[in-house]
Design a protein around this nucleic acid. Structure first.
Lengths: 228, 228
DNA sequence: CGATATTTTGAGACCTCTCAATGGTCGTGG
DNA sequence: CCACGACCATTGAGAGGTCTCAAAATATCG
């Protein structure tokens, strides 16, 4: 049981432009490239495909009744996103960094005649992993301070997309500060203050607004776990 | 991408007593009754079964590094719980109100020879719905005040398990205040204060500690949504 | 190079947490 | 049946972290 007034998807008032790839044969996979700013799918859309991010990154969001936005997740290379529920998408998905994406017909996840057992198994596994991952994320948001959240965020991003440069780790942040705030359930100002503090402590060195150099990975991990 | 240091399940130090039903044939379903206090499965357990709650209620929990506990969800009649990830459970499950439960061999969810298409479809649908439900729950915990959370909780519980009595709604709370607090990510004291305030406002009338009478459902809904 | 949007910094308020004490419930045993 | 003790829930007071509001600084882009 979850405490939620199940937000019935309202395909009517969709502020998002649709960008659905052309129909495919049931077993086909579509590789395609999407540029920054494109909406891959919207809350309420018929879930024709499930997507695998190969390169680039995407942002999954939901909008509440009161208009506030919540970033549910970021999709990075290797992630499989867009699992349908009742054959519909329940989040918006925007490309935030030009991405190569594979689209799998969603029926590959369904039962029936299993035409591609390997892919089916992969998609099913990804769906189940998604449940666990959301629980993990949930735990972390529930019990961490602002500082710990931001440190965790940078650490995870560093592990997943960082580029080693000497002792340091270079990473690009395709998302805005507001995106990060909406993801970590913080105010933008709080995120900004946390970044500043990390910089003053010498753990990170922001290159530009969109790129960061992690100077002390260990200290970052410590910060993400402890209270100091 | 979720910000989480994937908590590798540690089957070693399990404080929980195991209570795994006997092996079944792959296609069999096991109906059984479990009394309050029993552990249905534990974090790290091999996920032999997926469970459907018919009557009673269960509690799904996780424990963090620092020892704090998080209640992930409550399982009520109709819920399907215990979806595996990498063939393992990732939460603890305790019976908090004597429950009739159906156990499905977890391979009914997997692919391969589909021996029971209907059940397979039902389990798959439940898994996908679980993702959406967690997102919903996530949204609600992220953006609601303590008062709104508690009101939401009572409202949802009322809709799912309440018994109409005249204009009122009678509902039993099999979980403790601490369970509710750990579920809503609040301190016990805050939950208690919220209950008291709802009582003073005349929206609810606690009968005993475990039972509540909802006097004004509409006002409860309003409280769960607005700021007042 | 100016205009706009985004980010950062600052000050104060507020909500929830923590710590502490009281009150209530339930089970056990006298 | 009542007394006692353990546990849980409630109430109170104070502290602290994060939010909100406001303004300055910086980046982006035509």
């Amino acid at each position: 049981m979850y405490v939620t007034h199940s937000t019935a998807a309202a395909p009517a008032a969709m502020p998002y432009r649709r960008n659905v790839p052309p129909k495919l044969r049931a077993t086909a996979q579509l590789h395609s490239r999407h540029v920054t700013g494109i909406h891959l799918f919207c809350e309420g859309d018929d879930a024709t495909f499930i997507y695998e991010i190969r390169t680039g990154s995407v942002r999954l969001t939901r909008v509440l009744e009161n208009g506030r936005r919540q970033v549910i997740a970021f999709g990075l290379p290797g992630d499989i996103i867009g699992f349908p529920d009742e054959d519909r998408h329940h989040t918006n998905c925007d490309i935030i960094d030009t991405a190569d994406i594979i689209a799998y017909p969603h029926r590959l996840l369904d039962t029936g005649e299993v035409v591609d057992p390997d892919t089916h198994q992969r998609l099913l596994g990804a769906a189940l992993r998604e449940i666990t991952a959301m629980q993990d994320h949930f735990m972390m948001l529930a019990r961490k301070s602002a500082m710990e959240k931001v440190a965790s965020f940078l650490h995870v991003l560093s592990r997943r997309t960082g580029t080693p440069i000497g002792n340091c780790m270079f990473l690009s942040l395709p998302m805005s500060r507001t995106d990060i705030a909406d993801f970590l359930v913080l105010a933008v100002e709080t995120v900004s203050r946390s970044f500043s503090l990390l910089r003053k402590k010498g753990l990170i060195a922001p290159e530009t607004l969109q790129t960061v150099l992690v100077l002390d990975q260990d200290a970052l991990v410590a910060t993400s776990q402890n209270q100091e």
